[in-house]
């Protein structure tokens, strides 16, 4: 392909490139709404199955809340945020395989802006997923017990998780530049989610899973989110602190990926 055929100018700013990348990814979503399915259907399905089957777990003396729907909704919402982020990595891998990313890399003066574009797009996708997920959960009995600020806190926390997952997955995509990296983006997120207090609160976990869950940062997100929903501020500082730390770490990972991709 004759790259010289493309007029290359350097007028594009970080924001304009990020906006372009985000616009393009959201446009793709509008053309193919099915792209949202994995990040929406899987959490929804887990929510329905776990909520329906396991609600009698609230009878355990140490469980605390009796609203198992709310307990599981937080997990579903966080899953949706994480899986949507992983989809950002998938999208970028496809762009690498189609050659589009190569061209974007050669024309974008500030390449980190490409990552920013994906982050914005995946946040947009997550918002759409959350808008669908919340009323369905409500129909299955989930109720908000927290105040407005706490609700904002819950969704804000999920958004932070979404950013972390996107940075992680796009970082992997930038390093590997092939769709073969898809399991590497998704599996760590999936495992992190299920090595946390999924069915029972942290204090009710036992054995090795408890040990792992205690150090699993995702546990902080779940516990704080469940606290917000039930109206109790639990682990809030821990969660946002872990969130900020992970944003920085995954951000550095993504930037390292950009450098790796730039070297080719």
């Amino acid at each position: 392909m004759n790259a010289a055929a493309v007029p290359v100018t350097s007028h594009a700013t970080v924001w304009s490139i990020a906006r372009y990348v985000a616009w393009r990814n959201l446009k793709l979503l509008m053309r193919s709404p099915a792209l949202l399915v994995p990040a929406l259907l899987l959490p929804l399905f887990f929510f329905i199955a776990f909520n329906g089957a396991l609600s009698s777990l609230t009878n355990l003396p140490g469980f605390g809340s009796k609203d198992y729907s709310a307990f599981q909704f937080v997990f579903a919402l966080m899953q949706s945020a994480g899986f949507t982020g992983a989809m950002g990595g998938f999208a970028m891998s496809e762009d690498f395989e189609s050659g589009f990313m190569d061209r974007l890399m050669t024309t974008a003066s500030a390449r980190a802006a490409i990552i920013l574009g994906y982050v914005i797009a995946m946040l947009g996708r997550f918002v759409i997923a959350a808008i669908v997920l919340t009323p369905v959960a409500y129909a299955f009995g989930m109720r908000f017990h927290g105040n407005a600020l706490q609700i904002v806190g819950l969704y804000g926390l999920a958004a932070v998780l979404n950013v972390i997952a996107t940075l992680w997955a796009t970082g992997v995509a930038m390093h590997v530049r092939s769709f073969a990296a898809a399991p590497g983006m998704f599996l760590p997120i999936f495992l992190l989610f299920f090595l946390a207090p999924v069915f029972l609160p942290l204090n009710e976990l036992t054995g090795w899973l408890h040990s792992v869950a205690v150090v699993n940062p995702f546990t902080r997100f779940l516990e704080a989110g469940r606290g917000f929903l039930s109206g109790e501020n639990t682990d809030v500082l821990w969660a946002f602190g872990a969130g900020a730390g992970l944003v920085v770490l995954t951000g550095l990972w993504a930037l390292k990926g950009v450098r790796s991709a730039s070297r080719g």
Binding site: V6, S10, S16, I17, R19, Y20, R24, S98, R103, T107
Partner: peptide, 12 residues
């Protein structure tokens, strides 16, 4: 088709 616009050409 899949028409991808390059930022340099299309952001304007």
């Amino acid at each position: 088709s899949k028409i991808e616009r390059l930022p340099t050409a299309m952001l304007k």
